[in-house]
């Protein structure tokens, strides 16, 4: 649905650009392709790594890792699993709901969802390419730490 809106927006902007200046439009498309091709090798790498990872660490394994242990150790484990893996939202949220139903705590699930979204170990090479090592590592470490804050608040509100 949102992607569709992006397509509509891109089409409108592209036509406007084409009517105003064909040369510039051609240049824009060339830049679009170059920006994509620049990062394509890393994208392919990420896609294969995610595939391998999801093949080895399936939802069952994640449930075993997160579902069992509770308390701070359980939260830390959940944060690690979320930070290392890269699961798309439409898989992660139903999985989180199942884990909750099976007895996992809200805080554990919150920290898992948070690091899953904000921390990206697999995508770190791409992030480093654009932001440099220091900024990328800093952002990810801060995101990892703040995920516990998010979890604590959720624990207070929903616990």
């Amino acid at each position: 649905m949102f992607t569709l809106i992006l397509y509509v927006l891109a089409t409108i902007l592209l036509s406007l650009s084409f009517f105003k200046d064909r040369k510039k439009t051609k240049k824009a498309l060339k830049k679009a392709w170059k920006a994509f091709e620049n990062i394509l090798p890393q994208f392919i790498g990420i896609l294969v790594i995610i595939g391998l990872m999801l093949a080895v660490i399936d939802p069952e394994t994640i449930s075993r890792l997160i579902g069992g242990e509770s308390g701070f150790l359980g939260m830390f484990l959940a944060a690690l699993v979320g930070g290392i893996t890269l699961i798309p939202g439409f898989v992660a949220f139903p999985l989180a709901a199942t884990l909750l139903n099976n007895g996992a705590g809200f805080m554990q699930i919150a920290v898992f969802i948070s690091t899953l979204m904000m921390v990206g170990v697999v995508t770190l090479p791409v992030e480093i390419q654009y932001f440099g090592k220091r900024a990328a590592v800093l952002r990810n470490s801060l995101a990892f730490s703040f995920s516990f804050v998010v979890a604590l608040v959720i624990g207070v509100v929903l616990g």
Partner: peptide, 29 residues
């Protein structure tokens, strides 16, 4: 299993990439 995941994720990526990079190119110019 790994290939199946990679294929699905690749399709998902290829679906979002064209409008995003076209908008990026237009913004740049």
């Amino acid at each position: 299993r790994s290939l199946a995941h990679t294929r699905n994720n690749t399709l998902e990526m290829l679906y979002v990439v064209p409008p995003i990079f076209i908008i990026l190119g237009l913004l740049d110019v």
